[in-house]
Design a protein around this nucleic acid. Structure first.
Lengths: 203, 203
DNA sequence: GATTAATTTAACCAAGTGGTCAAATATAAG
DNA sequence: CTTATATTTGACCACTTGGTTAAATTAATC
């Protein structure tokens, strides 16, 4: 009753996810979702009681898509360089396949920051764990002392933001769609290089 | 008739800017803008004909706020390190004073990418100019050969994205509001360091 | 001060919105 | 096959939305 459910329900949900991520909560219309799913509008309310309920489910789903198993990567005992590469590549994979989710997530979170509270539990990596990991690496002499906040901010920024600013970036640089894809591929190398360089022990 | 205009017009415009940047086009209500301005709803339509027209004006205004005199910085003959520092600091100033504009701009641009065409003229830095500048610096041996796209992406990402992801970042790291402000202040040093390091000639 | 024009308002409207409901159809159980 | 149950639909509703209009008020002009 919660996992697979009826075919129709999945159909509706997928349509809702598409419309909501494209247009946002305020811009999405129940009628449009129904049309996209090829069913009657009343059926939306039969399966999901209200626009809010439907959106809540979609947001949860997209949120999980966007924050993948970060913990499982960070928690391994691979060298930190490798962790960074894995993280960047995993994010670029997700975002390449779902170019709208980043803009969607951050917009809806800005409209409604308290939504974070209900969803953060699922994926949150305890900040203390990361601080601990950095501390250990510093003591090993593997990296220089850095504030976790900046390390995270830099890594996520360089990885995610190009998707959010895609139209501006393309227009500004004159890239077309395939060139943008190529550009993202290049970033798989570039971002880890820069991040790793930025935390290398001072020579 | 276009610059100063009546007091009421400015009052309305400021209210509209506030509501639109907070809630986005779809989430904003003409009634709410009228309330914010302390005037009748019909008066909105007296000064600005429609929601679209009003929004267009606001968007233009915010857009100019967001893309400041990039060109005037890049075009000087100061050393590139200094240009980068100036650019980062200018952006952080703007964003600290207008924390909502980044999220607003990129959301509306994603909803309506063709809006870019009408506004880019005002501020666009010709990509060729930047490429030329990089080329010159490379020939001087001041920097290593880098793709302009990545340099721009990295710089803008690290500067702007923290504001867009502010709620997530705060929740994830446990920062409060003053700590976030402090965090941004630190980035004035950190971002230029990383960017400059990333373009330094290979030793 | 009278008259004309600009500004502001209350009341109103048509279209669109999320949501409901009773009837119709398909599916499952006996 | 019949009955009960789950699914799907068309018609409908109350409310909100952007927008209009005619009247009222204020400001400008003579």
């Amino acid at each position: 009753m919660t996992e697979l459910d009826s075919n129709t329900e999945k159909l509706i949900f997928r349509a809702a996810r598409k419309i909501f991520t494209m247009k946002g909560y305020d811009g999405a219309r129940m009628q449009e979702i129904a049309d996209e799913a090829g069913i009657n509008k009343a059926l939306l309310h039969y399966y999901f009681r209200s626009k809010d309920k439907l959106f809540e489910g979609v947001f949860r789903d997209v949120f999980r898509t966007f924050f993948p198993g970060i913990k499982s990567i960070l928690v391994t005992d691979r060298p930190i360089d490798e962790k960074i590469k894995l993280l960047v590549n995993q994010y670029l994979d997700i975002l390449s396949g779902n170019p709208d989710v980043a803009g969607f997530i951050f917009h809806e979170l800005r409209m409604n920051p308290q939504r974070l509270a209900g969803n953060i539990r699922d994926i949150v990596i305890d900040a203390r764990e990361i601080r601990q990991m950095i501390q250990t690496e510093v003591e090993k002499g593997a990296i220089r002392p850095v504030r976790m906040e900046h390390l995270i901010a830099n890594l996520i920024s360089m990885t995610v933001f190009p998707f959010i600013s895609k139209p501006v970036l393309m227009s500004l640089t004159g890239m077309d769609e395939p060139q943008f894809a190529q550009f993202i591929e290049e970033r798989r190398k570039i971002i880890p290089e820069i991040i790793i360089q930025s935390i290398k022990p001072t020579a």
